[in-house]
Structures are given as structure tokens and as C-alpha cells.
Design a protein around this nucleic acid. Structure first.
Length: 853
RNA sequence: GCGAGCGUGGCGGAAUAGGUAGACGCACUGGACUUAAAAUCCAGUGACCAUAUUGGUCGUGGGGGUUCAAGUCCCCCCGCUCGUACCA
């Protein structure tokens, strides 16, 4: 019976075409210099075990682009791999007694099979996994190169210590004073660690943001702020009657004559010396150090300071001496860890001066030569003219900055400088499951790099996770090694790299993942840069800044010929879902909730459930939908279609049952359309239209081709789908009466399928075959518009009176202004408004006519 | 505090360069089919008025302005979201 044949069966056809693509190596990519290349990449996942909706959205976006570009004749590289070092593997080892390696490998297998069920057009022959020594051995070589060229170094600093993960974090990984992954309050700790000289590239990283035309402004701005370039001066303040000085950084050297105190960070070097000389400040200092233990309440902390019983000389005024304070609001990490306070023109200094009764000297006024009237209630930080400032008087702020720096340099009391907020990237982590840092410590020879013949430094397989701290430090066999220089006993570095190290260059490795060196330059030159990179906004300053730095550093070392890795970037929004709580205020899974009219109940309808906010899907709130369930129930084409159809990619989207069902219904209707008639013997060819109906269906088809193409180019995939649906409605409406009609319909349906294919590839392959095609639709070229149809000869022209729409006329485009005016003025609904001659008629050809009365 | 983005029907969202606001969908309503329901198909769907039409008034967070014409441009205000924060 036809009913049986007519049933859309996604699980059957999806499997069929996934096998077809794999068997035919449809998406394998080879270098072909005669073709234009296109490299599309989605941020590779951490193999946590199961894919989630965020992955589905990310990879569906990328797959659409990959298939679209392929149809447009590009040689497409679309790889996938695994960011497989990281803490969860180690946590699993501790709690479940499984080795991180086997845990990770199992997860990769699992996720890979889930991804394959989505029908993504990856070239799996390019797959890589960063925990594999074939990958990380190159990383060790790169690090040694960096070290030899001064781009990697070891130092002791105050680091961000994550007490939960028991490891160091980079500044970028501390968010609101908490670990970016653990959410634990971060402590300050003095430690030795390895750093990469990202600050060497601060200016380039900032400057080259301008060349990234296809990056979101938001991301560029975040990076710009993170780099934090500011112009100013170092200024030396000599301690009274000594040759010791305190150097401060200031962006406002123009306000020097308003200086009334010096403030040091509690961690400033000089503080230790003051402690020795003046032991009475020790107790007070403990109070001030609250900063180190409790950073999250920073903004609530009152500004406090400890006065030191010595003073410094003012650089410009011989007989003026300023008090020194150790103050909790001065940051050790920024500038020199010391500032001069100018209360009249800085709000913090103002508050501080009020509290400790310090002088407030006004040196910038809004109007020339005019002091502020009445008492000063807050700091004035805007532009103006200098007063009370000796040789700076009358100058603008900018002029005064220039002149004061000049004078400081003249007196040898300071210098012009540029300061960056960006700090060097600390890459040492006290973890097992990461890439070992290839360094050996020898008591005689000092720091030695592991010789190339001994690379890779592999992670030892047998490790004990029972003790706290880094298992590598507790591993005697592994840690003990001979010094490569003097051959006496030495010890390995036990820290491993921050996992952002791996993701900083994987996209380059994809161009030849099995090459003997890190990068096959010839392949990299062909494929790179990544033409379209897609991922979450949360990596705006972490991964994306590190990768840009890495490429610039590798370029400098001639390991690659590239200055920016990602030509175009798109950041996708989050996948959200309604939250539910039961009557005990516990979160509930959506699958356990049933909707009855406007109320929600448990699935057995017994207990009432309370709907909460629509929030990002998260395990903790249980508002997660498992992609595997969706794929098994509706098919991956439905999931792909829905996730693209509802919202623009950049915005957050809400996953709803209604939405998925709507998508599923649509695909069923497409199936009905394809199978309603037998097109097997109908030729696929373009013919001329015979009548109005044929004209209309051709017009709808070409309009859709034009609009869908534009929408995809603009990354507006929801609009692309809206236009695909519009064409579908027209196709459904078009009835076959003659053989000619059938040719017309087959032609239009075929074009429709090519447009839909990047979104629902399995259904389209199957439909394409049903239509009688012998080749895969994946090899069908993207259709072109026929302008003869799009340049319609007749249009509907709206008629306005005083800007309000009052009617419309169908006119030929060839009519001139007078003819159109006549038609408009005689329109039956217009006539009644015209009791006198119009004042003015504005006619915008093919757009609108407006009659002003 | 600072920076960025957003605000359009019951909901998600459309609207190249200032030119028919609400495309496309969800939900809803009515009808067909059915013993019935689901599914499917057809029709309607911003609000209000109306002589129910091929009519009118209002309508894109609020107020003002520019213009023949404003969701779109300018000024002021309100709200929400995200980022960032003692950066000297």
C-alpha cells in the first residue's frame, strides 16, 4: 500500500546516507591548488562523554556553512578533534578508579558515534586528540623553541591558586575572584612557574584587531580592554634625605602639582623594608591584607591605608614633601604597584584624602583661570585648563601631560611610557593529565631542556591518584632522570601545561595531523587562515587571545607563515530551556514534566510542578534535553532544522517541544511532497513557463534561491529557513495537470532540495535519489538565479496620502511618472481624499507614491 | 561606576540604502475528515471601531525632534541582558 511507502522514516534513511558518505569519502579534503579553499572550523570539544545541545547548535552551524561552501565549488576543509587533556579525566580517576586515558578514550568513542549520527560533513581522516603523544610531542618542541628564543621563562610570582583544583590559574581564568571552572574563591600564593611572553606581542595583538573585519565588535572590544593599553609616565619620588626612590606609574602627570600623597600596594617590595624599619606597622598590615583572602567583596571594602613615618620629595616643588601610605586599593599587578594621589582629580584619592585628612589641591578647572566655587564634593576628572601648577598654568590637560613629561625627563625624574594591563601567560599547572613540560632541573647545570632525541616526554601510565597534589611529583621513577649535560642525577619538571596550550594551535595541526613536524608549512599555507571559526562567546579573551598570540609567536620563530589564525569569527548564543521545580523546591527534568493546558504536572499528573525562568541548559538546574533522545525520536535532520530555524545564531535560543514537533511536521510534509508523484522518468531540465502558474512557481523558486543565498552569506540562517518554507508553500500549492507541469515542478523541487540540503542533508539525499538522480545531492552545484524572473515587469505600488497607506495599484514598471500619478489619483479609495489639488506628489519609482494634501 | 547590546502581536522572530510594519513559524480559533480523538487538510488570527469592505483610528519601551514619509536618523528618559571593574 502507498501508505507504507509514504512514511518518512528518518532513522532508516539517516543511517543509509551516513554510511554512503563514509564509504564514498564524500567529505575528505585534499589539497587542490586549482580550487579556492575554504576552512570551516567549530571549536573542538572536551570529551566529557556525551554531546549536549550547545554542541549540536555549534556543529550544525558549521556544517551548514561547510556544505554550502562545498556546493559553491570551494575545496572545503572541515575537521573535528578532541581537546582531551583536562581536569575531569583526573577527577574521574580519583572517584571511579579509572585511568584518565581509558576514561578519555571511552568518552571520545561515545561522542564520536553521537556526532556521526548527526550527519556532520567532517573529514574524519583529519581527526586528532591532544592527549595523544603524537600531538603533544610537537607542543614540547614548540615550547623548547619558545624557551630558546626568550618567549618562555620561569619566574616566581604571586599566582592565582585554585584550592579546589589544587592548581595555578592564569589571570584570564579568574572570573569574579573565582576559578573559571571550579567556581572556588581564588587565593594568592607565591610560586615558581613557567610563563609565555604574550606581553611581547601586546601591541601587535591590539593593532591587528583592526584587521579582523569579520570578527564581532564585542569580542574585539573585550580583547582590547583586556590588553588595556594606556599612555603615561613613570615618575620617581625620592624618599626624603635618601637616594632611595619610589617609582609610580601615572596617566595623569599633568596633575602632579595636585599630588598630596604616595600610596603603595601591600605587596610592594619596599613594604618589606618598611616592616623591618618600623615593626609597629606589621599588625596594621595584617588588617589591610584582607584583599588577599577575600577578593569577591572587593567593591564593598573601605579604602584604608597605613601611614609610614617617612616622606618623599615632590619632583617639581623643592620644599614640598608628601606622606607615604600602604593602601589596600593599590594593585601590585598594574603599573609599578605604586601611585601618587591627586585627590582633586581622582575619586579614589579623593575618598582617601577625606578619610585621612590630606590636602586637596585643585589643579584642573573647567574654565580657564577659574577655581571651583564652594567646597569640593567630588573629584573633577574631565578635561580643562591647568591652575595652581607653576609652569603648566593655562595649558590644556593634554598639553600639560606633554610638558610635565618633558620636564620630568629633563630633570631625570621620570620618563614617558606605555603601560599594558595584559600580563604574561602562566602555563604551569600542578596536574597529571596534561602535557609534561620538557624541562630537567640539575643541581650542577641548572635548568636544562629535554634533548630532542628524548622527546616526547611521555606521561607515565602507572600513577597513584590517592595522595593529594600532583601525582607526577609523587612518582619517583618518572621524576628522577639524568642531566642531559653532566649526566648526574637530576629531576624532571612535574608541572604540565595549561590545556589552553593545546587549543592554541590545533587548527593549524588539522592541515596535516600526521606530519613529522608540528606544522606542514605547505599544507598550512594552502588551508590557513581558518575562513570561518564558530564557537561560544566565553572564549572571547581566553582561547581566542592565546591562539592569536601563539600564531604570532610561531610566525616569529618561522614555524608557520601566518599572523592571524581566524579570518572570520561567529559566536553562537546559548541553548536555553524552561526550568521546573516540584513542590519541594527541587529542580526537575523536562522529561518528567507534563503540560496540561496552562499548568504543569509530574508525568503521572498527580503533583503540580512550578515553571521557573528560561535559562541556559545546565545539569545543575536539570533543564537539559538530551540530543540523543531527540535524534532517536525525530531524526537528526529535525534537530538540525529546528536549532537553526528559531533564532539568529548569535542570539540565545529556547528549546521547546513545540518547536521540534513543528520542524518534524515540516520534514514530513516535504517527504509527502516528494513521494506524492513519481518523477523518476521526468527529465530534470529548465523550460520556459507556459502560463501564469508556471511563471509564479519559477518566480518563487528564484526568489528563494536569491534570498536563501543572501541569508546564508549574512549568517541569518533563521531567515534562510523562512524563505525555504515560503518556497515549500508555493510548491505545495502548485498542481500538476500536464507533463510540462511535471517538468516544471521537478525542476523547482530539485532546486528547493539543494537549498535545504545544508540543513537536512539526509532527507535531501534520499529525496534526490527518489527524484531519479544518480549522483549524490552533495555534489549538486548551488543553484543560480534567473534574473529574467526576478526583474518582474509588473509590481504592486502602494499609494500613500500624507505618508499613510491608502491603497495600491498594479502597474507595469515601464510607466513614467505622469502615468503613475494619473493612475494613483484616480484610484477609487484615493479620490475621496482629494477635495483640492494635491500640494505635492512624491514618486519613488518601483517603491512608493506619496500624495501630500 | 564604565563599556556593549537589546526593547516590534499571546510567543520565537522578519522588515538591504528612511518608502506597504508584523515575512516565516509556534500557539490559538473555526471548519473538513473521523463513531470519537490524534494526525492531516482548509480558513482566520496586532488592538479597537465599523456601514464587516477594496473602510477607519491606534500601534515597534516612553517623551520630543528632523522628513513628503521614521521600527530604522537625532536629543532626552525608562527597562532588561551581557561584559568588565579600585587599571592610577
Amino acid at each position: 500500500m502507498s501508505f507504507f511507502v509514504n512514511k518518512y522514516n528518518p532513522s532508516k534513511i539517516e543511517k543509509k546516507w551516513q554510511n554512503f558518505w563514509e564509504y564514498n569519502k564524500t567529505f575528505s579534503s585534499e589539497i587542490d591548488k586549482s580550487l579556492k579553499k575554504y576552512y570551516v572550523l567549530e571549536m573542538f570539544p572536551y570529551p566529557s562523554g556525551d554531546i549536549h545541545m550547545g554542541h549540536v547548535r555549534n556543529y550544525t552551524l558549521g556544517d551548514l556553512i561547510a556544505r554550502y561552501k562545498r556546493a559553491n565549488g570551494f575545496n572545503v576543509l572541515h575537521p573535528m578533534g578532541w581537546d582531551s587533556f583536562g581536569l575531569p579525566a583526573e577527577n574521574a580517576a580519583i572517584s571511579n578508579n579509572v585511568h584518565p586515558k581509558s576514561w578519555t578514550e571511552k568518552n571520545i568513542q561515545n561522542m564520536k558515534s553521537q556526532l556521526k549520527k548527526m550527519g556532520l560533513s567532517y573529514d574524519w581522516s583529519k581527526e586528532l586528540s591532544t592527549c595523544n603523544s603524537d600531538y603533544y610531542k610537537h607542543e614540547q618542541k614548540i615550547f623548547i623553541e619558545f624557551y630558546k628564543r626568550g618567549l618562555a621563562y620561569q619566574k616566581e610570582t604571586i599566582v592565582n591558586w585554585d584550592p579546589v583544583e589544587q592548581t595555578v590559574l592564569a589571570n584570564e581564568q579568574v572570573i569574579d575572584g573565582k576559578g573559571w571552572r571550579s567556581d572556588a574563591v581564588i587565593e594568592k600564593k607565591r610560586m615558581k612557574g613557567w610563563f609565555l611572553k604574550i606581553t611581547d606581542f601586546a601591541e601587535e595583538l591590539l593593532e591587528d584587531l583592526n584587521s579582523l573585519k569579520n570578527w564581532p565588535e564585542k569580542v574585539k572590544l573585550m580583547q582590547k580592554n583586556w590588553i588595556g593599553k594606556s599612555f603615561g609616565a613613570y615618575i620617581d619620588f625620592y624618599i626624603k634625605e635618601t637616594t632611595n626612590k619610589i617609582t609610580v606609574f601615572s596617566t595623569r602627570p599633568d596633575t602632579l602639582f595636585g599630588a598630596s600623597f604616595i600610596a603603595l600596594s601591600p605587596e610592594h617590595q619596599l613594604v618589606n623594608e618598611f616592616k623591618k624599619t618600623y615593626p609597629e606597622i606589621n599588625d596594621k598590615l595584617k588588617k589591610i591584607n584582607i584583599k588577599n583572602t577575600n577578593e569577591q567583596n572587593l567593591d564593598k571594602i573601605e579604602k584604608i591605608g597605613i601611614k609610614i613615618p617617612v616622606k618623599v620629595s615632590h619632583p617639581f616643588i623643592k620644599d614640598r614633601f608628601l606622606p607615604i601610605f600602604i593602601a589596600n586599593f593599590v594593585l601590585i599587578d598594574y603599573g609599578t604597584g605604586a601611585v601618587f594621589g591627586c585627590p582633586a582629580h581622582d575619586q579614589r584619592d579623593f575618598d582617601f584624602a577625606k578619610k585621612y585628612d590630606l590636602e586637596i589641591i585643585e589643579v584642573v578647572s573647567k574654565e580657564k583661570n577659574q577655581k571651583r566655587k564652594g567646597s569640593i564634593e567630588s573629584a573633577y576628572t574631565d578635561n580643562g585648563y591647568l591652575i595652581n601648577s607653576d609652569f603648566l598654568n593655562g595649558l590644556t590637560v593634554d598639553e600639560a601631560k606633554e610638558l610635565s613629561i618633558k620636564k620630568l625627563e629633563e630633570f631625570n625624574l621620570g620618563s614617558r611610557t606605555i603601560n599594558y594591563r595584559l600580563k604574561d601567560w602562566g602555563v604551569s599547572r600542578q596536574r597529571y593529565w596534561g602535557c609534561p613540560i620538557p624541562i630537567i632541573y640539575c643541581d650542577n647545570c641548572g635548568i636544562q631542556t629535554v634533548p630532542e632525541k628524548d622527546l616526547p616526554v611521555k606521561l607515565p601510565d602507572k600513577v597513584d591518584f590517592k595522595n593529594s597534589g600532583n601525582p607526577l611529583s609523587n612518582h619517583p621513577n618518572w621524576i628522577n632522570v639524568k642531566c642531559p649535560k653532566c649526566f648526574r642525577s637530576a629531576k624532571r619538571e612535574t608541572d604540565t601545561f595549561d590545556t589552553f596550550f593545546e587549543s592554541s594551535w590545533y587548527f593549524a595541526r588539522f592541515t596535516d595531523p600526521n606530519y613529522k613536524n608540528a606544522i606542514n608549512k605547505s599544507n598550512a599555507n594552502y588551508w590557513l587562515p581558518v575562513d570561518q571559526y564558530i564557537g561560544g562567546i566565553e572564549h572571547a579573551v581566553l582561547h581566542l587571545l592565546y591562539s592569536r598570540f601563539f600564531i604570532k609567536a610561531m610566525n616569529k620563530l618561522d614555524l608557520i607563515n601566518l599572523t592571524e589564525p581566524f579570518k572570520s569569527l561567529q559566536t553562537q548564543g546559548m541553548v536555553c530551556h524552561q526550568t521546573y521545580k516540584n513542590n519541594r523546591n527541587e529542580w526537575m527534568f523536562p522529561k518528567d514534566v507534563k503540560r496540561v493546558d496552562d499548568e504543569f504536572f509530574t508525568i503521572d499528573k498527580k503533583i503540580k510542578v512550578f515553571p521557573g525562568r528560561i535559562e541556559k541548559m545546565s545539569k545543575s538546574k536539570k533543564n537539559v534535553i538530551d540530543p540523543n533522545t531527540i535524534v532517536n525520536t525525530f531524526g537528526s535532520d529535525t534537530a538540525r532544522f529546528f536549532i537553526l530555524s528559531d533564532s539568529p545564531p548569535q542570539r540565545d535560543m529556547e528549546w521547546t517541544d513545540e518547536g521540534v514537533e513543528g520542524a518534524s511536521k515540516f520534514l514530513n510534509k516535504v517527504w509527502q511532497l516528494i513521494t506524492a508523484d513519481n518523477y523518476n522518468d521526468t527529465p530534470y531540465q529548465k523550460i520556459k513557463h507556459n502560463d501564469e502558474n508556471d511563471f509564479k512557481i519559477f518566480l518563487a523558486t528564484y526568489k528563494a534561491i536569491s534570498n536563501v543565498t543572501q541569508a546564508i552569506e549574512d549568517f541569518h540562517f533563521n531567515i534562510a529557513i523562512a524563505n525555504i518554507r515560503t518556497l515549500f508553500n508555493e510548491l505545495n500549492f502548485y498542481k500538476i495537470k500536464t507533463d510540462n507541469n511535471k517538468i516544471v515542478k521537478k525542476f523547482c523541487i530539485s532546486n528547493f532540495l539543494i537549498l535545504l540540503n545544508p540543513i537536512c542533508p539526509h532527507l535531501c539525499e534520499e529525496a534526490w535519489e527518489i527524484l531519479g538522480n544518480k549522483q549524490s545531492i552533495s555534489d549538486a552545484p548551488w543553484p543560480k538565479v534567473d534574473l529574467e524572473y526576478l526583474n518582474e515587469r509588473h509590481i504592486t505600488l502602494p499609494i500613500q496620502i500624507n505618508g499613510k497607506r491608502r491603497g495600491e495599484i498594479k502597474i507595469a514598471k515601464s510607466l513614467n511618472k505622469k502615468e503613475v500619478e494619473n493612475l494613483a489619483l484616480n484610484h477609487q479609495n484615493i479620490v475621496k481624499f482629494l477635495d483640492h489639488t494635491p500640494k505635492k506628489i512624491i514618486y519613488i519609482p518601483n517603491k512608493i507614491i506619496n500624495i501630500v494634501i
